[in-house]
C-alpha cells in the first residue's frame, strides 16, 4: 500500500514500552487478553473507581501487533476533599492483541469505556465483545479501513477520480445511455434538425 508515512529507520525500537526509561508516572502491568477482564475486575474491586482512558497503539512489526492501554485512577467513588483525594495511585494496564483478536469489553464495569472502546474499534479495528453499541464513532459510518493503523496511508487511500461526463468531446463519453436518456447520436441529430429548419 503506498504511504506517505516515513518508513521506520532500521534502528527504531520495535517494542518501545519494554525499553522505557525509569519514569514514575504509573504502576505498569502487562496482561494477556485472556486474563484482561478478570484483572480489571479485580482492580476495580481494589478501588480503582475511575477508568481514565483506553487507548491503543499499533506496533506494526511486533507480535502481538497492537497494545490496548488502560489508564486507571484510584479515586474514592464518593464526595472527597483535597486531603482525602491526596495523590491517588495511577495504574496502567497494557494488553497485547493480535489482529482480528477480540477483547472483552469493560463497558459494564466503567461507563467511560463506552466511547473509548468504540474509538479503538473505529480507528484500529479491534473489536470488543460484549459492547452494547460497537459502531464507528469518529469516522463516517460507511468508511473503509482503520486510519490509525500504521499501514494506513497518512493522507488517506488514493481514490479513483470519477470521469466527468462531457458531451462536447465524443471520446470521453462512456458507451451507454447518459442519465438524461439522450445519447450523443440523438443529441447530434437534434442539433442537425434545428439547423436545417
Amino acid at each position: 500500500m503506498p504511504s506517505t508515512q516515513t518508513p521506520p529507520i532500521a534502528g527504531a525500537a520495535i517494542d518501545p514500552p519494554s525499553l522505557r526509561p525509569p519514569i514514575e508516572d504509573a504502576v505498569i502491568e502487562r496482561v494477556e487478553p485472556a486474563q484482561l477482564r478478570s484483572r480489571l475486575e479485580a482492580l476495580k474491586a481494589e478501588g480503582f473507581a475511575m477508568l481514565l482512558d483506553v487507548g491503543a497503539v499499533d506496533y506494526l512489526q511486533r507480535k502481538p501487533r497492537f497494545d490496548v492501554v488502560y489508564h486507571l485512577l484510584k479515586l474514592p467513588a464518593q464526595k472527597a476533599t483535597v486531603a482525602q483525594v491526596g495523590s491517588p495511585p495511577r495504574m496502567r494496564l497494557l494488553c497485547g492483541v493480535e489482529e482480528g483478536e477480540p477483547l472483552r469489553s469493560v463497558m459494564d464495569l466503567w461507563k467511560s469505556a463506552d466511547w473509548a472502546e468504540r474509538e479503538i474499534y473505529d480507528l484500529f479495528g479491534i473489536a470488543f465483545e460484549g459492547h452494547d453499541d460497537l459502531r464507528r464513532i469518529q469516522m463516517p459510518h460507511d468508511w473503509v479501513g482503520h486510519p490509525l493503523r500504521k499501514d494506513y496511508p497518512m493522507r488517506g487511500p488514493a481514490r479513483e477520480r470519477a470521469p466527468r461526463p462531457s458531451f462536447a468531446n465524443k471520446s470521453n463519453v462512456v458507451a451507454g445511455t447518459p442519465p438524461s436518456g439522450r445519447t450523443i447520436e440523438a443529441l447530434q441529430e437534434e442539433v442537425k434538425r434545428a439547423r436545417e429548419q
Partner: peptide, 24 residues
Amino acid sequence: PGDVYQAVESPRGELGYYIVSNGE
C-alpha cells in the same frame, strides 16, 4: 524509546497524553 503518560489540569479537566517514542 519508551512510553509515558502525562496529565495536566486543563480548563475542562484531566488532559492526558500517552506518548510513545520508538527512538526516532
